[in-house]
């Protein structure tokens, strides 16, 4: 054997964490925070510079300063707030009108095989239809008033909530059903203590998806036969070639989306305190 002889009893020392290393970890976390804060600002700055240098056509792309200049009177006159509230109200109503039956039907489809057998094909066939394609029909049925907008949003929310709720019930671990059965839970007790709480995380996943769709649909729904709303503002600005106003409306939509998802997250935390986050 002529293997290289290793020194016996070699000692390797594991170092304790140094002061410097933990400091540098903190510094890095801080740096990342600054980076994520800076990136939008840098983008705005770049946009402004390009506009000032005439590198982009301000008639089409506008510039942050122009948009801000247009935003101030829109805010101070209350016009922007008015349109925002109109749209937010439609979204909220549509959301409720869609989500409530979605949850109820989703629960019953998940719990009762006959109901699922009855409705599943209908859902499977109608779900893929783009909701925008149904809008003209909705306008004919519900007329040009508020209800047509609310219903357009409701339809989009309904399917997402329904499908997620059903999946939520079907995915509840069978051991929980065994526990309920072995302790003699009645039908009603089973819904309230196992099916509904067990499906809640998926229900919320559906609600969040539904919120995204609601924002998409509000713009489309306000395209036709509306006299107010953020979506209406966008289409109106399009007609008038008012790019700045259009951007202001987009800012509002981003803001609305942020608020709604924040509210949903908050409600989720209250309703599902047991979820491991």
């Amino acid at each position: 054997m002529n293997a290289v002889e290793e020194k016996p009893n070699r000692i390797i020392k594991r170092e304790e964490i140094s002061e410097g290393a933990s400091k540098s970890l903190q510094r890095r976390a801080f740096l990342f925070q600054i980076l994520s804060f800076l990136s939008p600002l840098l983008l705005l700055l770049l946009w402004e510079i390009l506009a000032r240098l005439n590198a982009i056509d301000v008639r089409l792309f506008s510039s942050p300063s122009r948009i801000f200049a247009a935003l101030v009177p829109l805010v101070s006159s209350g016009e922007l707030l008015y349109h925002t509230l109109v749209s937010a109200w439609r979204i909220l109503l549509g959301f409720i009108v869609g989500a409530v039956p979605g949850v109820l039907l989703g629960l019953s489809m998940g719990l009762f095989p006959p109901v699922k057998a009855l409705l599943q094909p209908l859902v499977a066939v109608t779900f893929p239809i783009p909701k925008l394609a149904v809008m003209p029909l909705i306008l004919i049925i519900f007329g040009l008033g508020e209800s047509s907008k609310v219903f357009t949003i409701a339809i989009g929310v309904f399917y997402l909530v329904l499908i997620n709720t059903m999946a939520g019930v079907l995915n509840i671990d069978t051991i929980y059903m065994d526990v309920a059965r072995s302790f003699g839970a009645s039908r009603v007790q089973f819904y309230t203590t196992v099916a509904l709480p067990g499906a809640l995380p998926m229900i919320f996943a559906g609600l969040k998806l539904g919120m995204g769709t609601a924002l998409l649909l509000i713009v489309a729904a306000e395209l036709s036969a509306a006299r107010a709303g953020v979506g209406w503002m966008i289409w109106r600005a399009y007609d008038m070639f008012d790019i700045e106003k259009m951007f202001c409306a987009l800012i509002v939509l981003a803001f609305l989306g942020y608020i709604f998802s924040y509210v949903l997250d908050f409600v989720e935390k209250v309703v599902i305190p047991w979820k491991n986050r």
Partner: peptide
């Protein structure tokens, strides 16, 4: 198995 309801205290 783990059969404790996660949604109950």
């Amino acid at each position: 198995g783990d059969s404790v309801f996660p949604w109950m205290k």
